[in-house]
């Protein structure tokens, strides 16, 4: 037999090796495993949707806003106290008085 012919026969035999193949099956209790995976998917989605519910989003935003406002107010109060102190010191310097006595 010619080498080429031999090669072609081998290839044809290989291509025919799937003839009469039987379907492969997944392991037993496949449905149970699908169901468990489906439940995990649902739980994941529920947890995600719970975190992103509008009420939670609004509450978180409100908290951040409140913290910002209180920070600004505290800073302003500090500034005012500092300005008052400076004004007292200036007056005390001008009049040559002890600034502590002016505070009284």
């Amino acid at each position: 037999m010619e080498p080429n012919e031999r090669m072609n026969n081998k290839i044809d035999e290989t291509l025919r090796s799937l003839d009469g193949l039987e379907r492969a099956n997944p392991g037993p209790f496949f449905y149970t495993r699908v169901q468990a995976r489906l439940d995990r998917h649902r739980e994941g989605r529920t947890a995600k949707s719970w975190t992103f519910r509008p009420a939670w989003v609004a509450a978180s935003l409100g908290l951040v806003l409140a913290l910002n406002v209180s920070a600004v107010l505290m800073y302003q109060r500090q500034l005012t106290t500092h300005e008052q102190q400076q004004a007292t010191e200036t007056v005390a310097d001008e009049w040559g008085i002890d600034p502590l006595s002016l505070d009284w």
Partner: peptide, 25 residues
């Protein structure tokens, strides 16, 4: 449909555990 799906997936991924996983998906 489980055997049709598994058999098709197995022929493409050529790995039994992975085919089972993909078939579930």
């Amino acid at each position: 449909y489980q055997s049709r799906v598994y058999n098709t997936v197995l022929a493409i991924v050529q790995h039994p555990e992975e085919a089972e996983d993909v078939a579930q998906e």
